[in-house]
Computed example of a mutant assay.
Amino acid sequence: MISIIVPVYNSASTLPNCIESLLTQTYPDFEILLIDDGSKDTSSSLCDMYMSQDSRIRTFHKVNGGVSSARNLGIKQAKGEYITFCDADDSFEPDALSFFYNTISQYNPDIIRTSYKKKFASGKQEEVKSDALYTITDKEQVFVITEKNNYYGFLWNSCFKAQLVKKHLLDESISWCEDHIYSAECMADANLVIISPKITYIYNCNDIQELGHGNNLSQSMMDYKKVISIALKEKDIKMKIYKSNNEVITYANKAFESKMWIALYFSFYSSDFFAPLKIIAKYFNYNLKVLYNTWKFYIHNKYRKYIITLSHMKHIDLHFLFLCYSTVAQATM
């Protein structure tokens, strides 16, 4: 049996489509665990309604604790030999579980990682696929091929052997990139990983969820210190995998730098006037170009409603304003 864990929080508008995609799977031997994480909308009653209609569904209600605590409860309660995940605003392809079952029967892997389809609010679609089917026992290769194919650390395009995931629990103190850290821990402990070009998952996202596309990254405010802590923890786990393949270092550094840019961005919202320069000094080797470009992004987001006005005031020079900021900050640090 395959267990599907679905964390639910205020998802009444998307949950029916998610659950229907699971109930209509071509492979029948599964259970769905709906983990209601203290929803304030009608999600809770929807979970109970679906449970009453299908014996394969079990619902658990808990005090709100975040997606990690919801997934942990699901992992502890799961009865299947394998466990997979689905977010309440996404869906499975109809033959997703059939593919997992066939792959399990053929290889008995610890982890299966598959391709996925991104569907944007604008109507745009994008497929994220590996270039081939890989059966990997080398831990360094697992990490490198995962990164090369843009699979990263998502849980929802993966199926895990239950005895593996039950050895690890997600860090409930974080709710951003918690899946990346957890996946890295599981991959480091896996003996056989299958990476497949088969699409099993449909990931619904707004265009603005793609970093660099859209301009309201600031709507989801994060503590830059927490982002730094997460980046350091993830890099430490990945570097423990390293033995001789230098690509591990390359991809670990790339992921780290990406998260540090996010930390830099949110540091501009901090009450610590010097925070951005401290990050540039410690993690970007005093790269003022990175600092300037990030500062411009921050200014554009925070003061977007004034941008049109500013654009018509020719005496307003962002380069000059930035120079003033950086000069004062460095002089007073």
Rank of each mutant, 00 (worst) to 15 (best):
I308G: 15
L288I: 12
I208G: 10
N10I: 06
A96H: 08
P28C: 02
S21V: 10
L97G: 08
K124V: 12
E185N: 11
N301Y: 05
A263W: 00
D223L: 09
E210A: 06
W176Q: 12
I75E: 01
T135Q: 08
D110V: 04
A188N: 14
K243I: 12
D54M: 04
Y251C: 02
S105E: 10
M187V: 14
Y203Q: 10
S270P: 03
Q330T: 12
I2F: 15
R58Y: 01
Y224N: 09
L291G: 03
N191K: 10
I228V: 08
A162W: 02
T114H: 03
M222S: 11
S13Y: 09
L155R: 07
A329D: 09
Y224Q: 09
C324A: 10
T84F: 00
W176Y: 14
I194Q: 10
N253L: 08
M222F: 08
V8A: 14
A96R: 14
E140T: 00
T114P: 00
D179V: 05
Y298V: 02
V144D: 08
D171G: 04
T24W: 03
I280R: 02
N108S: 12
G153A: 00
S39G: 13
Q125H: 13
Q209R: 13
L321Q: 11
S271M: 15
S44P: 12
T59Y: 05
V248F: 02
F92W: 11
I241M: 04
T250Q: 10
K62S: 08
M49T: 11
Q219W: 14
H312D: 12
K240C: 10
D138N: 04
K129F: 10
I307V: 07
A190N: 02
S44T: 13
I249A: 05
Y116P: 01
S267T: 03
V227Y: 00
Y265W: 10
N301C: 13
T327K: 13
P94V: 07
D48Y: 07
Q219L: 11
L169S: 11
N64M: 14
E127M: 13
F284K: 07
Y269D: 13
K243C: 15
L22T: 02
N204H: 09
S55G: 03
L277R: 07
F266I: 02
M1A: 13
K282I: 15
V63S: 12
Q163R: 15
M313A: 07
E93A: 10
L23T: 02
I208E: 14
L170H: 06
S43E: 01
S158P: 06
R56V: 02
A275E: 05
E172A: 01
A275D: 07
M51H: 12
E140D: 00
L23E: 00
V165S: 00
I57C: 10
Y251N: 05
E210T: 05
A275M: 04
Y151M: 15
K76E: 14
T24Y: 13
I308N: 08
L291N: 06
I262N: 05
F30C: 05
D48T: 07
I174C: 05
I112A: 03
I57T: 03
F274R: 08
S122V: 00
N64R: 11
G123D: 04
V165L: 02
S229E: 10
Y134E: 09
F100P: 06
L46H: 01
C47E: 11
A255I: 14
N245A: 06
K254G: 14
N64Y: 08
K289M: 12
A329H: 15
N301D: 15
G80T: 01
A331K: 13
A263M: 01
Q106P: 03
G153I: 11
T114I: 00
N64F: 10
L192T: 03
